[in-house]
């Protein structure tokens, strides 16, 4: 087993609104290996953003543990706690909202450097800012240091927010939908730059997205974890997930997404769901929460027992799945629509 830099063990998280308790995450277990590309994929409300925040320590779990380099982050105190905070950074979806509009790029980047005493004085800060901008390909640096966020394009703003995340020399970066607000033509460039950071800075990147194709591109040599309604339903090597999805939800997702190729996309077989209604988190169905929509649903089993994420007995690939029929070693049998 490769070394896990982050490990989530039995993580639950719920929010309370008024009288109702919303279980946003339930029983999440997975590890992030050092320097791997891991993508968390899912639709809105699946809990992927909450998972990202929990990994960064921005949100405590309701129960369960998060290990950072083998240590429970809840037990960290003082200097160690600060080190964890610095080591795990998050990049948000909307760089416009997360950048202070009244600060120049230089001010924005120098502040954390000086506050955490990561550099020696103004001079040191200036050098480091230039280095960071160079890392995120905002060159020539002189063109950018004195700009305010509104003077930058969307892609450039996102690069600044990545540079800011890098100020504390993190070992893990959680990128939450970091390219979804950026134009198609420059999205890939941004992604490639982030992928290069791993090799240049030894940083592990957890990429959170709703776009499976983007996840495939980013984590081609890594892993994808698919989430549905607060649970991880499948996790495995990206190439296996794409070529041989195991969990019914992953299969349906892959079959539903249009492709940028007219012939392929029009001849694609779409698996019909039994229901198009997404259950509310406050009214989750019993058993497997996908069962009311699942075309392979087994009555009397899927609606009773909550499936556990595990390697199925008769697996052809080594993806872990949470699915009752697969858990029992049964073949999936498609229902007539």
């Amino acid at each position: 087993m490769p070394e896990s830099i982050i490990e989530l063990q039995g993580v639950y998280r719920s929010f309370k609104t008024g009288r109702t308790v919303v279980p946003v995450l339930q029983d999440i277990n997975f590890g992030v290996n050092k320097l791997e590309f891991l993508c968390l994929v899912g639709e809105s409300g699946c809990g992927k953003t909450t998972t990202g925040k929990i990994i960064c320590g921005l949100l405590p779990p309701s129960s369960g543990q998060i290990l950072f380099e083998g240590q429970d982050i809840a037990s960290l105190r003082g200097a160690e706690r600060r080190r964890h905070r610095r080591s795990v950074q998050i990049i948000h979806q909307d760089p416009y909202a997360s950048l202070n509009p009244t600060q120049t790029v230089k001010e924005m980047l120098s502040y954390p450097l000086l506050a955490h005493r990561l550099v020696n004085g103004r001079r040191g800060a200036e050098n480091r800012v230039n280095e960071l901008l160079d890392l995120v390909d905002l060159t020539p640096v002189e063109d950018f240091v004195d700009k305010y966020p509104h003077q930058l394009s969307g892609g450039q703003r996102q690069r600044v927010s990545i540079a800011r995340a890098l100020t504390t020399e993190p070992s893990v970066i959680v990128a939450d939908e970091s390219v979804s607000m950026v134009d198609v033509s420059i999205r890939i460039g941004l992604l490639q730059m982030m992928m290069d950071l791993r090799d240049r800075l030894d940083v592990t990147i957890v990429f959170i997205t709703h776009d499976l194709a983007l996840a495939k591109y980013f984590a081609w040599d890594g892993r994808i974890g698919v989430m549905y309604l607060g649970r991880l339903v499948e996790i495995g090597a990206t190439q296996q997930i794409i070529a041989a999805p195991q969990h019914p939800y992953t299969k349906v997702l892959l079959s539903a997404i249009p492709e940028p190729d007219p012939h392929k996309t029009r001849s694609k077989q779409h698996i019909q769901l039994r229901s198009e209604d997404i259950p509310r988190l406050t009214e989750l169905p019993p058993g497997c929460s996908f069962h009311p929509r699942c075309p392979w649903y087994v009555p009397g089993a899927c609606d009773v027992t909550v499936p556990q994420l595990a390697l199925p007995p008769q697996a052809v690939v080594d993806s872990e799945v949470a699915c009752i029929p697969l858990e029992r070693g049964d073949e999936l049998v498609l229902h007539d629509a």
Binding site: Y12, R13, S14, F15, K16, T17, V21, P23, Q26, D27, P60, S62, S63, P286, V306
Partner: peptide, 12 residues
């Protein structure tokens, strides 16, 4: 307001 809450774990 959101409050911390014990998880509603049916299988716990």
């Amino acid at each position: 307001m959101l409050h911390d809450q014990q998880p509603l774990a049916t299988d716990q």
